[in-house]
Design a protein around this nucleic acid. Structure first.
Lengths: 94, 94
DNA sequence: TTAATTGTATCGGTTATCCGATATAAACCA
DNA sequence: TGGTTTATATCGGATAACCGATACAATTAA
């Protein structure tokens, strides 16, 4: 179940500006477990190096325009791959 | 964008019994590219070793009960992680 | 039957992904 | 002020994920 983390971070940041600790807590809500700091901070650094996120003087991260495009592209990919995903929603209700 | 393959295979097999070559073509439709045979067949072998899929005498693969549970569990995980995914559907339409 | 195509399978290697341990800095509190 | 918690960051290492090359079997076509 690897490989979701970076996209989940992009998704989270697309909704709200957050610092590392807040992102960590949000990930716990969504995934069930907090990422190790040795996972989260390198991931944020990589996203920043790629120009997908930026951080202000208080270490609050947000998406760049490039990050928004990247997230949209990932959504497109996902929706194409699971184009018949509606049936999956059976798992999600209730 | 790694880590989607095994779940996509489970998803595909939940809809239709297929052999390796058919799975490969279905993946091309959904992802844009065929997986390398060095990716696909080890992936199928692993899914089989884990008891998630089974194959008949003609190498047609299908989900086992365990595989159905696993797929459902993955759907639950995904829907929880991206519970506010509806907004993502903007990317999917049209 | 032979040749060509299609399908299956394995191997070695590369890179991605994530973790625990550790260190430092910042914020809070006694 | 000094001590404790919280937040940020890096490092080395383990495993997952995937690829191209290669080999062989099975099917199809000539």
């Amino acid at each position: 179940m690897k490989g979701f983390l970076s996209y989940l971070i992009l998704w989270i940041l697309s909704k709200k500006k957050m610092n590392g600790a807040q992102i960590s807590r949000e990930l716990e809500i969504r995934r069930g477990t907090k990422p190790s700091p040795g996972t989260l901070y390198p991931a944020l650094k990589e996203l920043k190096d790629k120009g997908l996120v930026e951080s202000d003087e208080n270490k609050y991260y947000s998406l760049t325009d490039k990050g928004k495009i990247e997230l949209n592209s990932a959504c497109n990919f996902f929706c194409k791959a699971f184009y018949d995903m509606k049936e999956m929603s059976n798992c999600c209700e209730r």
